[in-house]
Design a protein around this nucleic acid. Structure first.
Lengths: 341, 341
DNA sequence: TTTTTTTGCTCAATGCATTGCACAACTTAT
DNA sequence: ATAAGTTGTGCAATGCATTGAGCAAAAAAA
């Protein structure tokens, strides 16, 4: 054992023949303490290598200076960039970030939130899992009195700040782009779950078709699970059943990639015969061959926005009405959808 | 405000006409308390919806139940899998994991470790950044008395538990495989920094060449920075300078990809003209065309091992000698290096 | 029955920083 | 010179759970 007993404000106080109160006030720059005393305290603190015990402060003033951040999967570029954005802002406020993953599973999500509350984080930032149906655990967070901010995958009916991208716009842009490339029979990969982001992307898809006078064929709208495998299966089925299609707008990059693999294996030319657009702008989309067009969600900005909303909420009471922030996405056009070069 | 005053053990005590001590001991299943009392306490605790104040416990027994995990970059599949492994083990011990990133920068690394100590984590798990030269900040952690475990990128001279993969073996296997594919002029991408993992991979490369009687040409050993761009530049230079080579063994998947892109752009056939093997088994290596052979480091297992070492250290004192655990990697052979199909 | 042991609980201190209140010393106003 | 205000610090309680020591009552042993 080499922990040579932690230095406390009492140790400093003793050395200076003052009380711990004076030391505490000096360190907190309280105006009631004379500059002379403050200086002496600061000097002694440095001399003894005093480190404030954050646990004791936390116990006293109920703030742990920790934010709980819960994402479905951290190895998705989108979410790890969110983490990055949140961390950047938090650092400026001297806050720490605890990251947990739900692995797209409601039970894990509940556990993680409980753990957050248990650790007494000062706020919770969540992107819900795809399997999240009831929201009682989120309600619990709200009721515990700490700020809750949802991002990306939001729950409109929940009384909490939310940050989302304009998924409708993303879907609309992607689809419009495909139409402009001359596509008429555009397959859409969405998800079976009723996450609003996927519904919105679908709405954008449907509206873009309508606006350009292209008939919406519901048999071209397929539910997937955001995994590469799902994209592969759908593509295989489309081919097997001889479905006529000339484009795919996938709400997930991974699905888009899976489908592209199968199409290529079957000698189908991309983008000439089938044009493809994904969603999320995962880094790998620029590594594939052809590179995959995708919708950039600006995750770092989203992370920053989310963190800032938290700090806002921390200052203002939470009697304020929930704020909803919408970030504009942008279609990144790559080889998989660019026909007229 | 709807936080209706936190329930404490004193509230439970009052209701049951016992003292807080009794309640505390009951909740901790202390043998000195009768089963009857324990049951009454547990029942009342549930009734009042009591949640233990972990901060108060932390203050009392000096354990926060939090592990600090520091990685260079969380969006590398290798590291996010490490996180996953650590979390899985930690959960079983009712521990939380705080993840921070150094972004491959020494200053960030120092800051993050300070933040960990400040939060009073019970242990620190670190993979150092590439720019880490002095180790005083790590020494500080050791001296603070909490367990420190290094993983992947280790510092042999530091008195701390370390978990690494057998990078030598990985380098040896990869190189041998290339030789077996008939390659004689094997380029090696390493890194300029003196991280032991890269040195070991290089050693494996050199020894494999020697063992198979292939001359080591130092002009084929190139320093890169693990970025896609570096791989591109090196490949461009190799071509521009008309260097004779028929394979690349890259210590980084990203570099391998960059080089492959350039080679393909120049009409060079892979693996027929140049065979390629990367390192880390990033998911994208199976998405590219051709898919890239790579060395799997079993990161989830590594994460688990690291976490387990921490819990070992937590129980045994830290007077024990530092342990070094080595995990065996495995070469995953894909299209980019398989000539004789 | 008396002594010893065990059982079951209470008391009070501890971990450390924070803060309302009190009070003395000093300054300024009257 | 006295009343009133200001300044600088100390006192003691607070936040909550934990734990060694102590003590009374009940059970077991002598």
């Amino acid at each position: 054992m080499n922990k040579s007993k932690k230095v406390t404000i009492h140790d400093i106080a003793k050395r200076l023949n003052v009380t711990a109160s004076t030391v505490s006030r000096s360190l907190n720059n309280n105006p009631r303490i004379s500059d002379k005393t403050k200086k002496r305290v600061l000097k002694m603190a440095k001399e003894l290598n005093y480190k404030p015990n954050s646990i004791a402060s936390a116990l006293r003033n109920g703030k742990t200076q920790i934010i709980g951040l819960l994402v479905p999967l951290i190895d998705r570029a989108f979410f790890s960039s969110i983490v990055r954005g949140v961390e950047q802002v938090a650092e400026g406020f001297n806050y720490h970030v605890i990251v947990s993953q739900s692995y797209e599973n409601l039970e894990n999500e509940k556990k993680a939130l409980k753990a957050f509350l248990n650790t007494q984080v000062d706020g919770v930032l969540v992107s819900i899992s795809k399997t999240t149906t009831d929201i009682s655990h989120l309600q619990d967070v709200v009721e515990s009195g700490i700020p809750l901010i949802l991002f990306d995958r939001s729950i409109p009916q929940l009384q909490a700040d939310q940050v989302v991208i304009d998924d409708y716009q993303g879907g609309y842009e992607a689809t419009t782009h495909l139409i402009e490339q001359g596509c008429k029979r555009i397959v859409h990969f969405t998800t079976g779950r009723d996450l609003s982001i996927y519904k919105e992307r679908y709405r954008g898809y449907a509206d873009a078709l309508a606006y350009h006078g292209v008939a919406l064929d519901e048999s071209l709208v397929l539910s997937a699970n955001s995994q590469l495998e799902d994209g592969r299966k759908h593509a295989e089925n489309l081919l097997k059943n001889n479905i006529d299609f000339d484009a795919i707008f996938s709400a997930s990059d991974f699905c888009a990639l899976g489908a592209m693999q199968v199409l290529k294996e079957n000698g189908i030319k991309i983008p000439e015969e089938v044009a493809i657009v994904g969603f999320s702008n995962e880094p790998f989309t620029s590594f594939t061959e052809p590179s995959i067009s995708s919708v950039n969600q600006y995750p770092i900005e989203m992370g920053k926005t989310v963190a800032n909303l938290f700090f806002d909420a921390l200052n203002t009471g939470k009697d304020v009405l929930p704020k909803k922030t919408v970030i504009q996405p942008k279609l990144i056009i790559r080889e998989s959808s660019l026909r007229n070069k």
